[in-house]
């Protein structure tokens, strides 16, 4: 029920390897997360060039119901972000693993990905929630 080709965080981000450019990874939020948040109406993403620390807050998501932080799944440098979401944040609800991607980063340490969950573990994590 969660895509097998992605890695996941406990904070409901997904990570796709590779991103659109050599050495980068793509980051978004899961279908479970978008459903729990409800209609997303505002997204604040990190700037290209920003140095992110894994587990630290790097942005903000606001829905009709709540405001939530966006976390960096791993440490790295932001190399791209999905600026289409500024005018169309609802795409995160309709296509969280595709057009609703959020940003891409180059990992500071490639082994940082090893700590993330696979789809099965993430599914278990969600069930406990």
């Amino acid at each position: 029920m969660f895509p097998e080709d992605l890695k996941y965080t406990r904070e409901h981000e997904w990570v796709r390897v590779p991103g659109s450019t050599e050495g980068s990874v793509r980051v978004g939020i899961t279908d479970y997360a978008q459903d729990a948040l409800g209609d997303i109406v505002f997204i604040n993403l990190p700037e290209v060039g920003a140095e992110l620390t894994g587990g630290a807050v790097c942005g903000e998501l606001e829905s009709t119901k709540s405001v939530s932080d966006l976390y960096a799944p791993i440490s790295g440098t932001v190399v791209a972000r999905n600026d289409d979401l500024e005018d169309h944040p609802e795409v995160v609800n309709s296509d969280p693993y595709g057009e609703g991607w959020m940003f891409e980063l180059t990992p500071a340490d490639p082994t940082g990905l090893d700590a993330l969950m696979d789809a099965e573990d993430y599914g278990g994590h969600v069930e406990q929630a």
């Binding site: 406990r10 904070e11 409901h12 981000e13 939020i29 479970y32 997360a33 729990a36 948040l37 998501l61 709540s66 939530s68 932080d69 966006l70 976390y71 929630a129």
Partner: peptide
């Protein structure tokens, strides 16, 4: 992303 209802760990 945090703080969904029922996530005591964060």
């Amino acid at each position: 992303m945090p703080g969904l209802v029922g996530h005591p760990e964060r």
